[in-house]
Amino acid sequence: MPLAATQTSVPVVVDNDKCIADKGCTVCVDVCPLDVLRISEMTGKAYMAYDECWYCMPCACDCPTGAVTVNIPYLLK
């Protein structure tokens, strides 16, 4: 069966103005137990690549610049 791309709204938001991934920071990507954050090759900033979040918050707490906001995933909000 062929695959389709389905839209999903992800809970984690990164403030690009605050994120210093382009200076070498990868803290949020490193601490995420579900390994769902990545640094975008386009913007050089962190973002949520997969909607597989345990809303556990280390990414937000450990970010040195306070750039990460974790929202409750829509399905259980």
Binding site: I20, D22, K23, G24, C25, V27, P64, T65
Partner: peptide
């Protein structure tokens, strides 16, 4: 020169 880079080095 960049504060962000210095910050990463500190971490």
């Amino acid at each position: 020169a960049d504060a962000g880079e210095r910050r990463v080095a500190v971490m």
